[in-house]
Design a binder for these strands. Sequence first.
DNA 1: CAGGGGAATGTTACCGGTAACATTAAAATA
DNA 2: TATTTTAATGTTACCGGTAACATTCCCCTG
Lengths: 361, 361
Amino acid sequence: MGKQKLTIRDIAKMARVSHMTVSRALNDDPRVREETRKRILELVNKLDYRPDARARIFSSKKSHLIGLVVSSISNPFYAELARGIEDKAHEQEYNVIFCSTENKSERTETYVHLMMDAGVDGFIFASSRLHEPVVEKLIDEHFPLVLVNRKLRGETCNYVVLNNVQGAYEITEHLINLGFEKIAIITGTSNLSTGIDRLKGYQLALRDYRMEFNENYVIQGPFTRETGYEGTKQLLTMKKRPEAIFGGNDYIAMGVIDAVEELGLHIPEDIALVGFDDNEFASNQRIRLTTVSQRKYEMGNMSVQILIDHIERKETDYTHRVILEPRLIIRESCGEKLWEKRKNKQPPGSEIEAFGSLDRM
Amino acid sequence: MGKQKLTIRDIAKMARVSHMTVSRALNDDPRVREETRKRILELVNKLDYRPDARARIFSSKKSHLIGLVVSSISNPFYAELARGIEDKAHEQEYNVIFCSTENKSERTETYVHLMMDAGVDGFIFASSRLHEPVVEKLIDEHFPLVLVNRKLRGETCNYVVLNNVQGAYEITEHLINLGFEKIAIITGTSNLSTGIDRLKGYQLALRDYRMEFNENYVIQGPFTRETGYEGTKQLLTMKKRPEAIFGGNDYIAMGVIDAVEELGLHIPEDIALVGFDDNEFASNQRIRLTTVSQRKYEMGNMSVQILIDHIERKETDYTHRVILEPRLIIRESCGEKLWEKRKNKQPPGSEIEAFGSLDRM
DNA sequence: CAGGGGAATGTTACCGGTAACATTAAAATA
DNA sequence: TATTTTAATGTTACCGGTAACATTCCCCTG
């Protein structure tokens, strides 16, 4: 059939102008006369001409493509982040290529190359490994990129992270303000900065409020439901049983619920509970969990914005650092309704050392 | 700096050959002498030359880019599907561009255009609307594409779907084989083909096993935890209380658990439960749910394979239809351990009308 | 009315690869 | 040895846009 794809020169011929005039008309160049433009656009519409994207990319040296590298797209954290990235990107006529590395370094390398081949204008990395040669190489070449929720050791780079110390501090403070004195924490392993930072925030809050820090009230393990379950069983068999539990993330908090219910106790009447992350199920459970929002969607938004700025301004340095402040999501798992305004302590002064161990992320 | 990006002609000059020889060497053309190739590749390595992706895409007319359109990336179903798609695509050196439409038609249109501009070689649509003008237009133009888990009314097109009727049939059969006679179903609204099909499978199984169909045992509502919760409360207050509940998806099954526990009953001792989907949390709960796998990851795999075939063979017709058979995931929520081999009925004949209402997907 | 200036449009080159055809040199054959 | 064949490499054009510079034409001004 006559499916011989139309080019800008075909249109030009039919409109009896040069191909440049057509190009200009299509790009809203103010130099073309209104009448000419109209004539051209009519033809373009009638023939349903669409400029060849590949040619355009090639000559303009811009793909409007962003590469997103996450460690696992099935992890709801990254899914939500991806949504934030994608929405913001599309808003500005950028497209997102993505891949998930499943935390394998060689996959990261393959994918980065694939994406370079696809011609991405920049990268967003939200995978979690510390030392990543490919990424470091990109940084050396000043290729536009942004790190989300992580930081490479020693490298200066654009990044967007959540202040985990602050978040843990505030949620602990929330418990303190409700009048709880025996507060336990069950949190993630000590080789993840998130775990470390949340524990740190918890400790700082206790310190600032001059509360006793009881080592037996700290339980660590992987960030899983199991950990919450086992940890809670352990805590609840202590003679000096805690009144409140801070689950290092919402999965752990789920495990806490399991154990508490199994022991025939109730949340929040018998024991208060907070989580961290604000996962979808945190609001969706019978027990509506008080937790800290990781603001994943916004992190996505911001990282894209930074990246696009970087790309379009052709900046050569990485100067954008965003530390998002956490946001408490107060629901009912601490008996907020029961205890409201029971006490409302003020911290006796002291500044928190927020965002302390960032460079271990 | 001398950061003047290297071209193939620069390499050529330094290797004292023509740029075509370099191009050939890089593309494993057997015509270049081994010695020459080595000399060129050494230079390429030393100078870290990478061919300009955009130029290559432009001249070869292939982007190796696949556009994936889902309705919501935060939905774990699509996340898992995306993973399947992505893995398979990368395996064959293809990249995936994605976007989620949040079920808005105008977004679909925008995104499809954006992706066309990015130069995708083909599309995978996993969004759920029935009538989508942009998609229909692509089909008219015989543009390579595959539909996943849906089918456009009246259009012939490549697709990959799960046999929901069969899945529901089998899981109902599972309950029947365990000896349950009063089996209720709580499932999704009747305007979703998945809901319809699962109900149909349930009915067919009852019919084939000559079991009574009790209308009061059918509860419909949105595919949410709420529906499961409310439905169960309703069911369990009936005088002729069901012994088993079939939750139309795992979210509904979660709600069933909530209600059952609230009433002080236990699963599976007092009531058996099955779900559908095999969501992550289905295995992760205290109550390990017996359910039906939607084989999301495999659906992703297959759809990519079909698409790439379509692209590379330059087929002009849509002839690939894949109907995946469901897979039962037997855990313990029906007391499988307790009841094993209690009875093991055989259906008294009759063929199931599998995959009945596909064209309403 | 010559010449300057700006608006509208045209010409040409170029981006960095690949494809098609051309050329050279060495090996095989007559 | 002349001639054909073939392997290895080279030349040129082209893909379909955009950028830079050139040209026309008309109007305005001194």
